[in-house]
């Protein structure tokens, strides 16, 4: 039972990441492979604040969001100049640079050793060190973020995003300042990823840079692409699928380190198969 709760918490965290990335990749059509950077920003903000200062978990989530928005704004200004595959290559760059900062700014992040001893949240005498309580908390965050994402995609703002995806030139002719829209959704998505990062840091009580490398961004992208572009439920389905799959591999009886590699093989092959046979993903509404 503990194990199932553990999986459910991981699922909630990745579902938040998937839903938020879907706003950028699925709805706006920008192939971003830098989501793990903002995920890491949230995680490190929470980890540093909880271990070095007296700030509580919930305030650290807010601060993580603020840092992520500030940073994504800077990055987004540069990225909104690029299109298509150049956009993707640019995001590779930012993920690598931010990973290098996590790894090398040793005074702040303790570098490759990571930050241990991050405390669990507490609120109104509810102790979230209990995993079941933590799961409820993670699900509440997931629900909130899903609701916000849904609100965005149904709003006029969301329709402009889809229009940018379909034909940016046309929407510019109508007088929309498209870089502003791209920047806004990029920052919103980054803020959501930071929330997932805060949850992750507090749940594991330990983080190190290896959780936020480029391949992690590729994994989150795989969640979105498998589940379905421009469909929020798709991202959740994708997270469910890609989190549960490796567990099945473990039950089949692979040793843990091979199981970890098998997970990579499986999701690599899934990406290829989806591209070959179902480019919109399981329940997606948009093809890359």
């Amino acid at each position: 039972m503990e194990y199932l709760i553990h999986l459910a918490i991981l699922f909630s965290i990745y579902a938040i990441l998937g839903v938020s990335l879907n706003l950028v990749v699925g709805y706006t059509g920008l192939l971003s492979v830098t989501h793990a950077a903002f995920y890491g920003i949230g995680a490190y903000t929470t980890a540093i604040l909880l271990t070095k200062t007296g700030v509580g978990f919930f305030s650290s989530v807010i601060l993580g969001i603020i840092v992520a928005i500030a940073l994504s704004f800077l990055i987004g200004v540069v990225l909104s100049k690029f299109k298509g595959d150049y956009y993707a290559i640019g995001t590779f760059g930012f993920n690598t640079i931010i990973f290098a900062i996590f790894l090398n700014w040793q005074n702040l992040t303790m570098g490759p050793f990571g930050i241990p001893g991050i405390s669990k949240p507490e609120l109104l005498s509810i102790n979230f060190a209990n995993n079941f309580n933590f799961l409820v908390l993670a699900l509440i965050f997931l629900g909130l973020i899903y609701f916000i994402a849904r609100f965005i995609t149904k709003s006029p703002f969301g329709r402009v995003l889809k229009a940018i995806r379909e034909d940016e030139k046309a929407i510019v002719v109508f007088g929309y300042n498209t870089p502003y829209f791209k920047l806004a959704i990029f920052s919103i998505s980054a803020a959501m990823a930071a929330v997932a990062g805060s949850l992750f840091a507090s749940y594991l009580t330990f983080i190190d840079p290896s959780s936020f490398r480029l391949m992690e961004s590729a994994f989150i992208l795989a969640i979105v692409i498998l589940g379905g572009l421009a469909n929020l439920r798709g991202a959740i389905l994708g997270a469910l699928f890609l989190i549960l799959l490796p567990e099945i591999l473990r039950f089949v009886g692979f040793p843990p380190d091979i199981a970890a590699q098998m997970r990579q093989v499986v999701y690599g092959v899934i990406l290829i198969l989806v591209m070959l046979y179902r480019p919109q993903g399981l329940i997606g509404e948009y093809k890359l």
Partner: peptide
């Protein structure tokens, strides 16, 4: 599109590396 090919090659890279 180029992006589809890029994603497919990302998949190939991940799988082969593993």
């Amino acid at each position: 599109s180029n992006m589809v090919l890029l994603v497919a090659s990302l998949g190939a890279m991940t799988a082969l590396q593993a």
